[in-house]
Design a protein around this nucleic acid. Structure first.
Lengths: 214, 214
DNA sequence: GTCTATATTATGATAGAC
DNA sequence: GTCTATCATAATATAGAC
């Protein structure tokens, strides 16, 4: 979460200074929102940590809520990019599912503060929250998984089953690894761990394959 | 989350009245904490919803934090019971894993408000939170899964693999289904859904079993 | 664009009567 | 055990000078 996208114009005067204040503010806000939670975070602590004063925050973002929205929008942008990257990857469905999990896992791992903020808001209480479309993440990841699953079934690479169930199983790997990473008493999984778990659910946990088709 | 365990003594006077106030308070607090989040929840709203006044809350629980701890302790108690029930279940490892997922899923489904509160606190920011051992849930579920996995490998029912990876795969099913249930834009999974997903990961997602042992 | 100083409201908690 | 009335503090946000 650094200085993101475009800012309108940027005239002759102290643009660097401006951008630096904005950037420091964004990083400080992500950190404080992560540590204290959005509701419990105070603008006082944010501006103190950023080394500026309150009116600067209100000048750039309009409100405490505006700061949060800026952080979330940047996160959603990175998430979309990561998923898109995985989908254009060549190889079997199994390989592309692995790539998808890898991309998402890496993104999460490299942006733990912002991800924790987003995760907490997504699964946490909705009331009194900013006007941000929190379904965005779900609406990006789910169709990506579904698309891979349907393709895998069409080519015969995947077993015949309810596509939603297969998606759920794959989503479970991502959810499990993510939880493990975000939860403070969990040991990190690592890319290797993700691959081993994926291999397991693709090949099956059982030693003998007593498959009962539904 | 109703009136829980014991209260000291309970003398001659208005015990019913007392217990009713306590119970209403607990339910109201769980609801408000769920809807607004712990930090953003105000004692004013809690007491209004419970139909009593502030001093009653402070008389029974000492503080806003005391209310939260009471809710969490009740939740941890129910969670331990559910896991213990599943472990004493007869049958194959596969059947007992299913029973475990079923128990946890049902408990979550029947106590959505309290579970959302606990989930939000567990994965959310730790600072400024009550003195409650949030690792409890993890410390109960993980060993239970691990025990079943190790037993399954000893008897040859499960494939030879890193036990942590198998645990992670199973945990992923629970995490995925839970997320689906808690997340507002997710469609419920249902007990049947859980069983189908478990069957999938036990038998494998792949149509052809090109197993490469690690 | 950034500051000092302040307005306004809501919070968690309590005194003290009954 | 439950109330009314209130305290002390900290919150978000803004005026207005520079």
């Amino acid at each position: 979460m650094d200085e993101p996208q475009s800012r309108q114009a940027c005239g002759l005067t102290a643009c660097d200074h401006d951008e630096r204040a904005r950037g420091r503010l964004l990083r400080a806000a992500a950190d404080v929102f992560d540590r204290k939670g959005y509701a419990a975070a105070s603008v006082r602590e944010i501006v103190e940590q950023a080394g500026i004063t309150k009116p600067v925050l209100y000048y750039h973002f309009g409100s405490k809520e505006g700061m949060l929205v800026a952080i979330l929008e940047e996160g959603a942008r990175l998430f979309e990019q990561a998923v898109a990257r995985a989908l254009t990857c060549p190889g079997s469905v199994r390989q592309r599912v692995a790539a998808l999990c890898e991309e998402v896992y890496s993104l999460f791992r490299d942006n733990v503060p912002a991800v924790r903020v987003a995760h907490a808001l997504f699964f946490g209480p909705r009331e009194g929250l900013p006007a941000f479309d929190f379904t965005k993440f779900e609406r990006v990841l789910r169709p990506a998984i579904t698309r891979l699953v349907e393709e895998g079934m069409a080519t015969g690479e995947l077993r015949e089953a309810h596509p939603e169930d297969v998606s759920m199983a794959i989503n479970g790997v991502i959810a499990g690894c993510t939880d493990q990473e975000l939860n403070p008493c969990g040991t990190p999984v690592g890319i290797d761990g993700i691959h081993r778990v994926l291999d397991l659910i693709f090949d099956g946990l059982s030693a003998t394959h007593n498959e009962k088709e539904n």
